[in-house]
Structure formats: C-alpha cells, structure tokens
Design a binder for these strands. Structure first.
Lengths: 335, 335
DNA sequence: CTGTTAGCGCTTTCAG
DNA sequence: CTGAAAGCGCTAACAG
C-alpha cells in the first residue's frame, strides 16, 4: 500500500541507491536517469519517509523547543522568530509548553531527546543544576533563549535585562522624577524578575535616591497584578510621581488603575516599563517602554543553533541583543 | 557510544524482546526480570530511540499542526489548547506557520506527512480544492480547526461565526441602535470574514434595517485597520451610533479612534465585536464582545483527532462550539 | 555515474 | 513469561 523507495527503483529500473540520490539532489546522477526516476516518483505518488531517513542518517531535521507558554504574547513572538529561521534552514520544530515548571521542563527535554531532535532551544525561567544535568545527557547542541545560566557554559541569547531596567528608570530620573515606584516580578526568576529589579535599584542608587519599601511591590508579570499593585500605591499618602513596571502588561494594568482613580497618565503619574509588546502601541496613552527585540531573540537563537548543529565555527556563544528606549506618551517631564 | 536496546538486553541477560516489553509497559514480564532490566537501563543510561520505534511500529506519537501565525494571540490561544490535549494523550506537536498562504500550507502539509505524523490539525483561512487534494494523499486523519469546508467531509471544529456576528449586532439593535456601522474583514475568508459579514447583514435585515454602504468598511482583522476604518466613519456627516467590528482588535482600534477624536465610548458611540481575546478585558472601557472559546476550539479539535487516530467511534465530526455574549462596558442603551 | 550490501534501533509475530 | 528472527524504509560506504 505505501510506496517505498524500492518500488520507485523497480518502476524506473534503477537501484535504490540511485533513487535515494535523486531524492536527495545528489549531483552524481545522469540527467536521463534522473528523469526516469522522477517520472516513477510521480507515477507512483512516492513520498519519502522521513522517519526511515532519520534512522539511517541519524538526522531528523527537527529541533525541539521548550517554551513556558505559547499563549503568552511575549513567548509567541519569540516562537515566530524561531520558527521562521528554523524553516529557512529546513528544520521543523516540536513545540512543548512547560509553564516554567521545572519538573515539566526536565520531562519534555527528555522526550524531545528521545525523539532524536537535532538540537534543543530552551526558553524558561531559571536554569537549575537539574537542568544542566539533563542537558548533559544530550548529544545534541542546546541554546538558551531569553535566559542564561551562571556558568555561561551553555550558548544563549538574551538582552541585558538589568541594563534595560536601568535605562528605563534612569530616563525617569532624567525627567525629574524622584519618587519612583517599582512593580517588580518574581525575584526567584533570576534572569528576568531579579535582574530587572537590580536595574531599578542600581539606577536609583546611582542617582543618590534611596529605595523606599513602600514604593516596591512584586507582581507576577501579568496585567492584573500591575493593576492591583498600582491600586495599593494609590492608597498611600505619598503617591509616587512615576512608576516603573517590570513588564508592559503590568504597566498597562498600572495605567488603568491610575485612570480608574480619575487621575491621568502621564500628567499625574508617569509609567514606563520593559518589553514593547504589540499591545504597548494599542493603548491610550501609548506606552513608553524599553523595547526588547522578541522576534530577533528567537531568530538569533535559532540561527545560532543551526550553526551549532552543523559544527560551524561560532565567534560568540553568549549573545546579548540590544534594547532600546521607545519614547511614547506615558512619561511626563517634571520640570 | 549510544546505548541501544541491545546493550540493555546483554547487560541484563535477557532478550531485546523482553527489554522492549518492559520499556513499553507490557504486563507479560515477571517482576523479577523487569527489575533486572530497569537496573540495566539505569546503569547504562539507556534512552529509547523514538525514531527507530516509529519506523518499526509505524506510529510516531506526533501530530502536525499548521497554523496561520503563532504570534497572533488568537491562534496562540488555540495552539495552547491543542498542545495541552496532545500532551495529555502523549502526543507531541510539530508546529508550522503558514501565514494563510495556500502555497505554504500545501507545502507544510507535505513535509508533515513525510515526517509521518499520526494526524494533522489544520487551521487556516479557506480550504480550497487544492487543500482537499493534498489531504487526500494523507493516510492519517485530519481535522480542521477554526475553519471548515463546503462539503463537510473533513472533520472540523469551529464556532458558528455567522450566528456570533448576528448575536452581536442584534444586541446592538435591541439596545436601540439603528445606524450600525460594520468594520469587516476580508470577504474572501469564507469561514470567518465573510460569515461574520453575513451575520451582520442578516441581523440588520431581520430588524428591517437597510444596509448603508457608507457604514461598511473592510479591514484586515487587525488593530490598525480598525482605527483607520473608524476614523473614516467619524468624518462622515451622519456618524453611526454604534459599530460592530468583526474582531476585538479592530474594535479596540475603533475605540481609540473615537477617543482620539474626543468622543466617548459608549456614551457617544457604542462598540461591539467578536472574539474575546485577553486584551478585551485589558482596555478602557472594557470591551463588550461575543466570546469564542479559543482554548476549547484547540482542545476539542485535538481531542477529536486523538479519537480519529485510534479509530475510535465518533458521534459527531462537524463540531460547532457555543459562543456567548459578554456584556462589559463598551455598549450603551439608546433608550 | 550506478549498484550491492550492511545496517540504523526498535517492534512484532511466532514459537515454545 | 521469554526468545529468535524478520523486517520497518532509507542512507552510506564500497565497488565497479
């Protein structure tokens, strides 16, 4: 029923090897025989079996990607970059959601490896010792995407989260703000939550400003938590004149909390954040934020992985992509 | 270097067949031997090769999913439903973006089939004759997710887009609106763009209202086009009292166009749409919309596919999921 | 330029 | 409950 390379060989009167050659575009085939083979392929409706090929060649041309949550816009934009480049180099991707649960992450890494992926792209929260251990059992290259780990042994691509946060806060300070609140994210998340907090702290300290515990809240990176956090700031007697939210979603939540209170952004309170998700330019006022190049992070990670998979020489295995402050409408100068 | 089932067999003093049995949880193995085998597996760090297994068993436990654009929130929410259920039934998914380009769609369908996926989930715009042709060459089940085709031969799951649009517009009419503008989407997109337009038209006609060409614009489903379309309506002398946008994104664009003009939603103009993306409850005013269960559409599609893949009896192969009007803040009564 | 021949690592009858 | 053996469909030397 299923037509194999053998059937094509018989039909066209050549050997399997020759059929294999024409299917794989090997130049060492006389144009004439090539034609015969193509005709047979067409006639029989032959479709090469990639699984058999994978077993024989030990290459599957598919890469595994573990992602926290594909329905989260921030990751889905990265994923698009990943897939586009994968595609460009003829790879397919097996996508696995992990919800940043360590157990789940380790589990999917293993099943991906069982499936003999040619490489692995890992996007997650923190990379623990257990992760490293799991990676070690792999015989294929791995790149971290949007994270990194201490030792910097594993190739990775990300932005400098601390610096991005620093730049955001500094721009607030430059605009004359002194009472700057922070809506942070999970500090356990070293690569992102903690790093962005560090950037805030450093910018404040460098400006000779002291951190005020009352002006620090930690949310979960999401809209609702930004809204909640801001509501609480609004109840304190000495309201901040500006707030730095560690993600756009929380910033937008904050903006709405402010507006719901009858106050205006940026006239009464300025808001800034980091990310630049699509929605940042789909709100009023337009959100001022430090852009992180989501698509590029995915694309560059995948490009790096393709190089690693063919043992290509690479100049740089710890890649930091640039971020950029996008001035829009949510920050006012206090002069 | 790589440890195979044969190595485990030797190490534990049993046959490959027995090792295969314990790995596959076949009950016909004496607990004692089972233990021996597990010990050997652990000792050698054996990891089953899913590609070899796939070749031998003709099952890969992976399904292909072709999706228009994973970075589009509407599809990424569906994708999450798909992956969750796939996972639950031990399948992995190979994800391919198609951008709704027919050529690309056909191409990825073919490579997915070459990779011997056990089933195919297709989300796209319109399903043409060429698609059907490509599907026919497949020997595995296929389900359409968020689309359908004329003949209804191919299993599918979706909502009733026409009825959803109808309900939205009808609610506007019930609220006393008469001048209801439409911001539509590509009419070539039969399953969605055109169907939703039909719903609008029918609701108007059923209420004895005549369609006004000046009050109809077609966008591309996205925010910017909603904003643009609304701007144009605002310049006409007889402004609509309400607008029905075929997607939430366009509705939000419309809201901003209205607000940018110094008018208020819903006091001056009401806005309603269909979708209920996460952002619908992350704007001011909160968007009133007809919710389509994105996650469920993905989950139910995948569940249907899992049944098809094991030849399970199915009662219903054309599944229509319910939609629901979510009253929030963007529609005012004209009484 | 083309054919022969081993496998790739696992599942699956078929015996026993 | 366990083993032997025959493939699954293809690639990759190696010859010629």
């Amino acid at each position: 029923m299923t037509v194999t390379i053998y059937d094509v060989a018989r039909e066209s009167g050549v050997s399997m090897a020759t059929v294999s050659r024409v299917v794989n575009n090997n130049p060492n085939v006389k144009p004439q025989t090539r034609k015969k083979v193509f005709d047979a392929i067409e006639k029989l409706g032959y479709r090469p079996n990639a699984v058999a090929r994978g077993l024989a060649s030990k290459k599957t041309t598919t890469v595994g990607v573990v992602i926290p949550d594909i329905s989260n816009t921030i990751f889905s934009e990265v994923a698009r970059g990943v897939e586009d480049i994968a595609n460009m180099y003829r790879y397919n991707i097996i996508l696995c959601n992990s919800d940043k649960k360590k157990e789940k992450e380790i589990q999917v890494i293993n099943t991906l490896l069982e499936k003999q992926v040619d490489g692995l792209l890992f996007m997650g929260g923190t990379v623990s010792e257990d992760h490293i251990q799991a990676f070690k059992t792999a015989s294929v290259p791995i790149v971290l995407c949007g994270t990194k780990e201490e030792s910097e042994k594993i190739p990775s691509v990300d932005i400098d989260h601390e610096k991005a946060a620093y730049d955001a806060v500094q721009s607030l300070i430059n605009a004359g703000h002194r009472d700057i609140a922070l809506i942070g994210g999970n500090f356990e998340d070293l690569a992102k939550g903690f790093a962005r907090y560090q950037g805030y702290k450093k910018a404040m300290e460098d400006a000779g400003l002291t951190l005020n515990e009352d002006l620090i809240r930690v949310g979960n990176f999401r809209y609702e938590s930004g809204l909640e956090s801001m509501k609480q700031f609004l109840q304190t007697e000495r309201k901040p004149s500006a707030v730095f939210a560690v993600t756009d979603e929380m910033a937008i939540g904050a903006i709405h909390a402010i507006q719901d209170e009858g106050l205006k952004v940026p006239e009464d309170i300025s808001v800034i954040s980091v990310d630049n998700i699509r929605m940042a330019s789909m709100v009023r006022p337009l959100l001022t934020t430090v852009a992180q190049p989501m698509y590029d992070i995915g694309a560059v990670s995948m490009r790096l992985l393709t190089k690693l998979m063919v043992n290509e020489e690479i100049e740089q295995s710890q890649i930091i992509l640039p971020h950029e402050l996008i001035q829009r409408e949510s920050v006012a100068s206090l002069s």
